[in-house]
């Protein structure tokens, strides 16, 4: 990825909390990252790591209340979206930023035809006539590889297979030529052969259309195949950031290293026994004053209890939120790479 590519999205110090009956949940804590034009940024983490909440926070897509954005800046083309009014935000959603969600079964409205749902953003953001929107909708469906596009416009979502439905979602997200596409676990609900089709489609679309993509997933395999750069999230924070090859070859955060070891593979050496990460993810009920991974970390020491580590630079475009990374110690786990 060219280092000189301009930044399209810049997120600084984002904090999102959920107010619940049993107190506050600090779902996103001081998350900062940027997105360069034309790159594919992978965001990996387990459920509750804050990866989806972060992305939903950017465009005010979280239900508020209970969600509340405490602080931060989200700069898209120099405009702070967190301070923008509702009208500006709506123009960005579906216009400059497209979304693809996890479950194509429930993410499309079951009672409207696919054509209607595709025309909506076109008419709203591009001011197209119904006819023009219809023609563009056909183009879009063809773009994402749906045969007999014109006939299928009047079909309802349930008449499409799971993979085809996710293609429709992608077509909707791409309708207004977005600069940024945010894909939230877009292949998690799909079968592996269908997932392979969608991954291939996305790679193809990105090279043709050149938008920047944020791809949220829990699947390290998907990230390895598709991402240029990766953010690893844990406990509502970014714990590591690195170019994809660097991350897999030289993980510097103990969580990343452990996660890579815990996943079995279909080729290569078979592990006699899976490496596990003991314990459970943190509850995030208080503002973090210590490292969120300390209870499960094999390398934790007294400082991890007292302080939440900052993200220390450990290489070119590579940083990790771990005191071991600050002192330059090499993870024992990383040695195998």
């Amino acid at each position: 990825m060219a280092e000189t590519a301009p930044t399209v999205l810049d997120v600084r110090d984002l904090k999102t909390v959920f107010r619940t009956r049993s107190g506050e949940v600090h779902a996103v804590n001081s998350v900062s990252f940027d997105l360069k034009a034309g790159e594919l940024l992978g965001v990996v983490g387990e459920s509750g790591s804050g990866k989806s909440v972060t992305m939903m926070s950017l465009l005010g897509l979280l239900p508020m209340p209970p969600a509340e954005i405490r602080s931060g800046e989200v700069l898209l083309d120099g405009v702070d979206l967190l301070k923008a009014d509702a009208r500006t935000l709506r123009a960005v959603r579906g216009g400059k930023v497209g979304f693809v969600f996890q479950d194509p079964m429930t993410s499309l409205n079951p009672t409207f035809s696919v054509g209607f749902q595709l025309r909506e953003p076109l008419r709203k953001h591009m001011g197209m006539s119904k006819k023009a929107a219809n023609d563009r909708a056909v183009e879009l469906l063809e773009l994402v590889g749906i045969p007999d596009a014109r006939e299928r416009l009047k079909d309802y979502p349930h008449q499409f297979s799971g993979g085809m439905r996710q293609r429709v979602m992608i077509a909707i997200a791409l309708a207004c030529d977005p600069k940024v596409l945010i894909a939230d676990e877009p292949t998690t609900a799909l079968d592996v052969t269908i997932q392979a089709q969608i991954l291939e489609l996305m790679a193809d679309l990105q090279s043709r259309l050149g938008m920047a993509v944020i791809w949220i997933t829990h699947d390290l395999g998907v990230i390895a195949g598709i991402a240029d750069r990766v953010l690893v999230m844990y406990g509502g924070q970014i714990v590591e950031q690195a170019p994809v090859r660097e991350l897999f070859a030289n993980p510097r955060h103990p969580y990343t290293a452990a996660l890579l070891k815990t996943v079995p593979k279909v080729s290569g050496e078979r592990e006699a026994r899976l490496t596990i990460i003991e314990g459970q993810p943190p509850m995030l009920t208080a503002h973090p004053t210590a490292c969120p991974f300390r209870d499960r970390c094999a390398h934790a020491f007294d400082r991890c209890e007292r302080e939440n580590p900052a993200r220390y630079t450990v290489g070119d475009g590579h940083d990790a939120a771990c005191f071991k990374a600050e002192s330059g110690d090499v993870m024992p786990e990383a040695a195998h790479a």
Binding site: T193, Q195, A196, G221, A224, G225, V266, S267
Partner: peptide
């Protein structure tokens, strides 16, 4: 099926040949 499984290894991804089945 095996070839469609994404392996957590970027190097392998760039070199391995993959079979992508069409259709459902």
């Amino acid at each position: 099926l095996l070839s469609a499984v994404p392996e957590p290894d970027p190097v392998l991804h760039d070199t391995a040949e993959r079979i992508i089945l069409t259709g459902d």
